[in-house]
């Protein structure tokens, strides 16, 4: 139980300090901080560090007012500039787009050349009828035994009156 409380306290410590806990949870954590010496120490350390972070981090990268004004001037200029027209043929003539278009064309040509090969179209590239291969002839003349010569017969009966499908004749009749 104590371990659970300890863990609960640790997990909610940050929110307790920032005042983001519900009233019930806040009361629970506060009571435990008062009871447990370790938690109290941890709370003091945490609070001190959080306060320092809260006060020192906003000072990091504080902008220069003059620089911000310059940025606004250039932003304002961009906002007032007419909207750029959509991509059209003339855009593909720019050096960057030329490289891209060239790459696309090359890719298309490669696919067009390789596609028939990939989908098995190569068989139609050989329209000549090749002679058929000779059939293999068995030269085995050894007489076969009677059992081996006996044809295999699988007989089936007519579907029974219940329409359950065929029943093999050599299977025992179902109990009716």
């Amino acid at each position: 139980m104590i371990r659970f409380k300890h863990r609960y306290c640790k997990v909610h410590m940050a929110r307790y300090i920032s005042g983001d806990l519900s009233i019930a949870a806040r009361r629970r954590v506060g009571r435990y901080i008062d009871e447990c010496e370790d938690c109290h120490r941890e709370y003091m350390r945490h609070r001190e560090f959080a306060l320092k972070l809260e006060r020192s981090l906003p000072t990091l990268g504080r902008p220069n007012r003059q620089r911000l004004d310059q940025l606004w001037t250039s932003l304002e200029r961009e906002l007032q500039a007419p909207a750029r027209q959509s991509m059209w043929l003339s855009d593909f003539a720019s050096p960057q787009s030329m490289q891209f278009s060239y790459g696309l064309v090359m890719l298309g040509i490669s696919i067009a050349l390789l596609l028939p090969m990939l989908i098995g179209f190569h068989s139609s590239l050989l329209p000549v009828d090749l002679p058929r291969l000779p059939q293999s002839i068995s030269l085995d003349t050894t007489p076969q035994t009677q059992a081996e010569n006996r044809p295999l017969i699988f007989a089936t009966a007519e579907p029974n009156w219940r329409g359950r499908g065929p029943i093999l004749q050599n299977t025992p009749a179902p109990d009716l």
Binding site: L57, L60, G61, R62, P63, L68, L71, W72
Partner: peptide
């Protein structure tokens, strides 16, 4: 709007 949020946004990006 830029005046209100510009400095904060810059600090965020810088941090």
């Amino acid at each position: 709007l830029y005046d209100r949020y510009g400095a904060g946004l810059y600090r965020l990006c810088y941090s």
